[in-house]
């Protein structure tokens, strides 16, 4: 479904953020991308969703729609708009023009996610990280994407909120067959959620394989170091 070939990205001329990155993703799978800060994983996520353009290489995506969920949930909403208004905007960008229909659809989306109706009147700063992230996910889902790109979506959440989000992601995969491209620095989260994982360091992919392979028989020294530091081994 998604194929990335020989991506290169430079920042400010000399910083080689992505070095010859290539990988592919099958429909319906959950691919994890793990790396530390500076590894280029966020850049890769942004390039895959076409928010920034690569300097060379190409991306082929033949799925129906791709959306992205960001790391800082409260900051991914316009602070001056209510959650309902933000969601309305997402829907109207997707083509819905009738005001009455917008209101109905927003209410329906909130309800289907198990969120209280009065949350539509709240502002981002009034909600917790976990609550905002849930709304961010339904906002992304409102476009009915086949691929959900997640850039560290649980990294800024407390453990309990993180667990709830992971349950939500699992539910989405099970019930809607959504593919996930999940970027995280947390190996445990990736092990819990994904089928395959890519390890990145300094703009390069060091290792890629199934969860079982990479976690039990890591090949690359950096992967081994990561596993050791996370005390999984």
């Amino acid at each position: 479904m998604l194929e990335v070939r020989s991506l290169h990205k430079f920042f400010k001329g000399s910083v080689h953020a992505l070095k010859d990155v290539s990988f592919s993703m099958a429909r319906g799978e959950a691919l994890g991308l793990v790396g530390e800060s500076g590894s280029g994983k966020t850049t890769l996520a942004k390039i895959v969703t076409r928010l920034i353009a690569p300097d060379s290489g190409d991306i082929r995506f033949d799925g129906k729609g791709m959306q992205i969920v960001f790391q800082n949930p409260n900051a991914s909403f316009d602070p001056r708009m209510t959650m309902g208004a933000s969601l309305s905007e997402a829907l109207s960008l997707a083509g819905e023009k009738k005001k009455t229909r917008l209101k109905e659809r927003v209410a329906a989306l909130f309800e289907s996610a198990g969120l209280p109706a009065e949350m539509t009147r709240r502002f981002p700063h009034e909600l917790s990280g976990g609550e905002c992230q849930r709304v961010a996910v339904i906002r992304a889902l409102s476009r009915d994407p086949e691929l959900l790109v997640c850039d560290e979506p649980v990294s800024s959440l407390d453990l309990l909120a993180q667990a709830k989000m992971l349950n939500l992601f699992l539910k989405l995969r099970k019930e809607r067959g959504i593919s996930l491209f999940f970027v995280s620095h947390d190996l445990r989260v990736i092990r819990h959620l994904c089928d395959r994982v890519m390890v990145m360091k300094d703009g390069e992919i060091c290792e890629i394989g199934s969860i079982a392979q990479v976690f039990e028989k890591p090949q690359h020294p950096y992967t081994k170091e990561l596993l050791l530091s996370s005390s999984i081994s």
Binding site: L160, A163, K164, L166, N167, L170, K171, R191, H192, L193, I211
Partner: peptide, 9 residues
Amino acid sequence: VAPQTRIEV
């Protein structure tokens, strides 16, 4: 916690 299962929270 078993991978890809619901976390009981």
